[in-house]
Write a protein that binds this DNA or RNA. Structure first.
Lengths: 225, 225
DNA sequence: GGTAATATTTAGGCGAATCTAAAAAAAATA
DNA sequence: TATTTTTTTTAGATTCGCCTAAATATTACC
């Protein structure tokens, strides 16, 4: 099924707003899309007819499963194109969003799967946001600073959203690289710095600033189900 | 200046039709764009108001200089994206046109210039059609079978529009590769085969079929102005 | 040169996506 | 709870790109 760019933008916006609150209001959508509430109502009715969202007047909206699937495909395209722009064409990560907003509406499924392949099936975009796979499944990636504290669950660094020399310098200092296993043991509220165990051995403390750039994927359970 | 995808398609279609006949008719355009003559008339009036073409009712249209500039930028984008799809993503040359029809409307100038760079500033797309440079200038490329005969002007192979094993095999046989200098000395009318001098030395005869796939750029004048 | 065939334009309409202004429902508050 | 404020929807218009049907201009041909 193919949808207009405009519809795709609505679906994507609803998806993002749903991350904050379970039901999305007409006004919130209008704000997000820089449009007027009346226009939103019109469009919601159309999207509802296509079963992309649950909508009852005055009650706000939620994406249906089918709507979520569409949203994830758009997000996949957006983030893969961003990755391409930065890694292959040398754009700065701040300047790619706008271009990706256009590219995400290119419809060819084959194109996006081949692009994914070409880029090496990246797990996150240049901003560190996770890229859904071809089936729309998000990798379980989080900024380490957002992880729940008392889990004791180990996590592996999967990417670093900043490749500056200064960043790499710091990572080297802490002996952190792609694949390093980390475990959070404490979060100091004063500056929100994190205490970590690196590779099950050394104990370190890192700043929130650094933590914001470390993306981790939860490590597979070790044995026990 | 930015134009809608629809307008860009009109401009591109007019540009292509102008290659055949100096003035483009409403009907020809309608046919090309799979639309109705009445719709074409509507659009021509709008494009005329934007000074993209010369238009007087019942007299057909021609692009203005400004219209041509726009057309060439669209063609540049189309062909660069085709090159990308084939060379980087591994698409077959037959399947890229449709996707490029969408990609050509992505507006970022910086994107297309970086893409050009990334691809190595190719001179032709996978079908062998020339790619305008950033200023809209077409490289002087021709299928060798279309070159005027008694020129004696040398030309360098700049690309080959077919990368099959059979093709490469044949080229190897003739010692022709990218950069090889060719000079046409005769065209046999019976089968339109061509007699060439390769690298100023060996004399060979190639079929029209092969010649259709050899693209050449006129060699720079050697010394004399 | 006049008439028939063809090409083009005009007139009026439609769907998509937007808008403003006004009405109606829901929420907040006195 | 009654009233005010806020949110949302409805009603009616606009622009864009397209359509069909009818009118008009051009061209081709007897």
């Amino acid at each position: 099924m193919k949808y207009s760019s405009s519809k795709e933008n609505y679906i994507k916006a609803i998806y993002h707003l749903e991350q904050e609150e379970p039901v999305v209001s007409t006004n919130a959508l209008a704000r997000q899309l820089s449009t007027k509430p009346a226009s939103v109502t019109d469009m919601l009715k159309k999207l509802h007819e296509q079963d992309l969202l649950e909508y009852e007047p005055y009650k706000g909206v939620r994406l249906t499963e089918s709507g979520k699937t569409v949203a994830l495909q758009i997000i996949r395209k957006h983030r893969l194109w961003e990755f391409f722009l930065v890694e292959k064409l040398g754009f700065g990560w701040e300047e790619v969003h706008e271009i990706a907003e256009e590219l995400e509406h290119i419809s060819s499924r084959k194109l996006i799967d081949r692009l994914d392949e070409f880029l090496g099936k990246p797990k996150t975009d240049p901003h560190g946001d996770p890229i859904p796979d071809a089936n729309g499944k998000m990798p379980l990636i989080e900024k380490i600073c957002l992880m729940d504290l008392p889990t004791g669950i180990a996590a592996d660094i999967i990417s670093v959203s900043n490749q500056s020399a200064d960043m790499l310098d710091l990572l080297k200092h802490y002996s952190i690289e792609i694949g390093t296993r980390l475990e959070i043991t404490n979060r100091f509220q004063f500056d929100r710095s994190l205490q970590l165990i690196v590779q099950g051995k050394s104990k370190i403390t890192i700043s929130e600033h650094l933590a914001m750039h470390l993306f981790v994927v939860y490590a597979k359970e070790t044995g026990s189900k």
